[in-house]
């Protein structure tokens, strides 16, 4: 009895809060504009690093920069470079943005596969498989191999999925904080 009574107002409040949130609306990252969508994705890339744990010994010192490789057009690389310019990780680690060609992705900590090309994606993923590289695909991956993080657009907003199996294969640990924000999480097999 008592429990049910107590639960009712709580449920009502939550429903109200949800309604409010919907009303408020967040048009900030509206992906109707492809240019904007790319810019949002570019800012997210280096932010992911804060919630990923690389295997011990990956970085020799705190000053050892995190290498963010962009496999895509120059324009996208420029966007990412601009987003990360002057930024560091939360622990102060510097960020180095590098443009890489597919199949030449060496010494990357984060590998952003953009734009989408199914065949090359699978190839690149295969290439870095088992290496401590956070792979980020521009959209849901079609194929056997998955990127650790895959951008998705939900309700006109840039969101992402996380593949824990892929993370485990690359010996990466993903923070639960990031998992909380993921649209879908694919568990470790």
């Amino acid at each position: 009895m008592a429990r049910r009574k107590a639960a009712r107002p709580a449920m009502r409040i939550r429903a109200l809060a949800l309604a409010l949130a919907t009303l408020a609306g967040f048009a900030q990252a509206a992906p109707d504009d492809p240019g904007l969508e790319a810019a949002v994705k570019a800012t997210y890339l280096y932010k992911f690093a804060d919630y990923i744990e690389w295997p011990a010994g990956r970085f020799s010192s705190p000053a050892d920069p995190l290498t963010l490789c962009v496999a895509g057009s120059d324009a996208i690389t420029a966007l990412v470079d601009a987003a990360a310019a002057g930024r560091t990780l939360q622990n102060g680690r510097p960020i180095a943005v590098r443009h890489v060609a597919l199949a030449h992705e060496r010494d990357c900590d984060i590998l952003y596969l953009a734009p989408r090309r199914e065949e090359s994606e699978q190839e690149a993923l295969r290439e870095v498989r088992g290496q401590p590289v956070l792979t980020v695909s521009d959209g849901p991956v079609v194929g056997n191999l998955h990127a650790v993080i895959a951008f998705a657009v939900v309700d006109n907003r840039v969101r992402f999925d996380i593949d824990l199996d892929a993370a485990a294969q690359n010996r990466l640990a993903v923070s639960s904080k990031l998992l909380n924000l993921a649209v879908r999480v694919r568990p470790k097999l």
Partner: peptide, 12 residues
């Protein structure tokens, strides 16, 4: 993180 990734829903 919700702010970083503009996740108003999570923030809410």
């Amino acid at each position: 993180p919700a702010l970083e990734f503009d996740d108003a829903k999570a923030a809410q």
